[in-house]
Design a protein around this nucleic acid. Structure first.
Lengths: 218, 218
DNA sequence: GATTGTCGTCTCACATAATGAGATAGTCAA
DNA sequence: TTGACTATCTCATTATGTGAGACGACAATC
């Protein structure tokens, strides 16, 4: 079995089950195979999660994420009211650049991806909404850390920092003087070049302005 | 403490904690007060949920739903690809009627609210996204059960069925010949009248057609 | 400045909740 | 008909989770 993640073993197992089902719907046998949890244990925990609505069973008997997960996810997202307002700006940015677009906020020493739209290109970066990433790597991190150069120029760029072969550029979203989010694009260095800021700086700044405008309209 | 909900006491407690935080951000003391869980237990479980990303602490030390909840919620929603596609149609329906608008799918003998937009009126119905409701009450239930009258007419209506004082009307969303969802509005009988179908049947049917069209465009 | 109350966090003796091996029943393909 | 595999259930065992109490920090009050 997995090593202990927290001080509560039952929660460790339950979250492992949820993660397994997040990836794909799984029958009990699949859950056991994917998680290494003993069959009766996986069964008991999965049924308990079902009782709570975090999981549900489809017509083939496979476990899927359930309505409570939707509700909790929406409640979690509600803490970021500009997340929905940013939707059109993010879509326009993705369409204008053809690259994957993301919106991040800062949480302590991490950054959380609130919204993520993928590029239509076969080769593209994928960041899951809800993903938690370190601040010290990537253009969005620099923006959220209040990097003076980024704030003066209106964008930050990174090349191969968080992941080899990946470049990104992000712009700060302001509320008054405060940086409340970073909006940007990321993709392969081959397309974004080693100066992604030169290429897409204006586009991410325009997207950031649109997010701010959408916020004011709220 | 709460009576047992499932066969796994730790999960019962953990979900109680998540529900408490879903309602409002809470410091540890607030969690203890809201849930009745012993302080060291609430602390240990909350910290474990934090380790897993289901909870996070804000700058005031209060617990809030965390990034993993966002991610799981989105993954859960992804099982319903038309949910996002339905967004504009739902917004248009809410705007055209001035009433709360919802999108439901059927899950066994229940219906799940996938998306919900609230009326601007002070008096309005509120259904949480993710909520699970019985099929046998309400216009959406009739639609999802394949009620012949609803299918022939293109909408179903209910007055005071699920809740006193509330009326609703819903239309089926088809994929080919199959009813895959119900889209509708609900609100107080005073505004929707005792014949909500007469008043808003065309609007909910139009919304259903728009959802289907958005689906084809996907 | 001292005292008190409340907070979050930690410890650990103890009780019990959770575990998982094995049993059972159902399904399905060979 | 048989064997393999599934999901579900039981229950002896024990490892885990519990929560009273302790501790330190901090704010409010006197």
């Amino acid at each position: 079995m997995e090593p202990r993640v927290s001080d509560v073993g039952v929660l460790d197992k339950a979250l492992v089950l949820l993660s397994a089902v997040e990836a794909e719907p799984l029958a009990l046998a699949g859950l056991v195979a994917a998680t290494g949890i003993a069959r009766p244990t996986a069964h008991r925990l999965a049924v308990a999660l079902e009782v709570h609505g975090m999981l549900r069973r489809d017509e083939d008997g496979r476990f899927r994420l359930g309505p409570r997960a939707i509700a909790l996810g929406r409640a979690a997202s509600a803490a970021y009211p500009f997340r929905d307002a940013a939707g059109p700006a993010l879509a326009a940015l993705r369409d204008a650049t053809g690259e994957s677009a993301q919106l991040y906020v800062r949480e302590g020493d991490r950054r959380i991806c609130l919204a993520s739209l993928e590029s239509p290109h076969g080769l593209r970066t994928i960041v899951d909404a809800g993903a938690s990433l370190p601040l010290e790597f990537g253009s969005a991190g620099a923006v959220l850390l209040g990097d003076p150069t980024a704030l003066a120029r209106g964008w930050a760029e990174s090349v191969g920092q968080r992941e080899a072969g990946v470049a990104s550029v992000s712009a700060p979203v302001f509320d008054g003087d405060r940086v409340i989010a970073a909006v940007g694009v990321s993709g392969p260095i081959e397309r974004l070049t080693r100066q992604p800021g030169t290429k897409y700086g204006p586009a991410v700044m325009a997207a950031a302005r649109r997010v701010e405008q959408a916020l004011r309209g709220s």
